[in-house]
């Protein structure tokens, strides 16, 4: 079983703060992390390998420092990692990103299951997985919360939808995106960390992938960000004063006046 996990290095958002003076993101002290949703993808890949044997290859597109993220995933079970890095890849939207990833996966030749996280925590689009599937011309299942069985070229999975779960069967090779409910990612192991320290992480550039520079990075992107701004929150609310009982009474009165709730 050849498993490919696609992942991205993102700023750890728990510490994303806005400088109230300049209204910009405060980057100081923000460590880059592996996109949390991708850690579930990796863990699931490693579990499939442990259950059915095989190899887990992690792929990331990003700047040279994304190598850190790939070393980290080697310490938690990936067998190999490849970094797709080239100045030509910068500024890619999901279309250009999935094109680049698809070219890299095609270069690997052998793949049975490709796993992505449901979305990244910086871009939040969740589009790379499904777009990648189309570019590889293989089936796709989103929001997988459980891999039930892999057998005879087919995989049976459970996926989350708004009001429940669907059990879906898909032929291999296939692309899936996973949700956090699927597993609890393991921490690195000492042997994994030792392996990660010495691992050679190849860097594939645009030339090595043989991609048309007009298909990757900003030039290959169909969308452009033309403006960024901070959501304005205007505070026009009212803090209800008084003792507990009068607070409750005043709230209920106000809601009734506004006909939000019924009653006398």
């Amino acid at each position: 079983m050849n498993i490919v996990v696609c992942l991205k290095q993102v700023p750890g958002t728990t510490k994303v703060n806005i400088d109230p003076q300049t209204n910009t993101l405060v980057r100081q002290g923000i460590k880059n992390i592996v996109n949390p949703f991708d850690t579930y993808a990796l863990e699931e890949g490693v579990r499939i390998k442990e259950r059915y044997e095989g190899k887990v290859t992690a792929i990331s597109m990003g700047p040279p420092q994304a190598e850190e993220a790939l070393r980290e995933v080697i310490s938690t079970g990936a067998d190999e990692a490849i970094l797709l890095s080239d100045s030509a890849f910068a500024g890619a939207d999901t279309l250009a990103t999935s094109h680049t990833l698809a070219r890299a996966i095609n270069k690997l030749k052998q793949y049975d299951i490709i796993i992505c996280g449901r979305q990244t925590i910086d871009g939040d689009t969740g589009q790379v997985g499904p777009e990648l599937a189309e570019m590889l011309g293989i089936p796709f299942v989103a929001y997988v919360s459980k891999i039930e069985e892999i057998d005879n070229g087919y995989m049976r999975v459970k996926r989350m939808v708004e009001d429940g779960h669907e059990v879906i069967e898909t032929p291999l090779p296939t692309v899936i995106t996973v949700v956090k409910e699927i597993n609890v990612p393991r921490l690195p192991s000492l042997r994994g960390l030792a392996k990660a320290r010495s691992a050679v992480i190849p860097i594939w550039t645009a030339q090595e992938l043989g991609v048309d520079k007009n298909m990757v990075g900003l030039s290959g992107s169909a969308t452009r960000v033309i403006r960024v701004f901070f959501p304005q929150r205007v505070h026009h609310g009212e803090i209800l004063q008084g003792d507990l009982e009068s607070q409750a009474n005043s709230l209920i009165d106000k809601l009734r006046e506004a006909k939000i709730i019924s009653g006398s």
Partner: peptide, 11 residues
């Protein structure tokens, strides 16, 4: 189990 997976019992 976490300690085991992390090789901490191996040291």
């Amino acid at each position: 189990k976490d300690l085991a997976e992390a090789d901490i019992f191996r040291i």
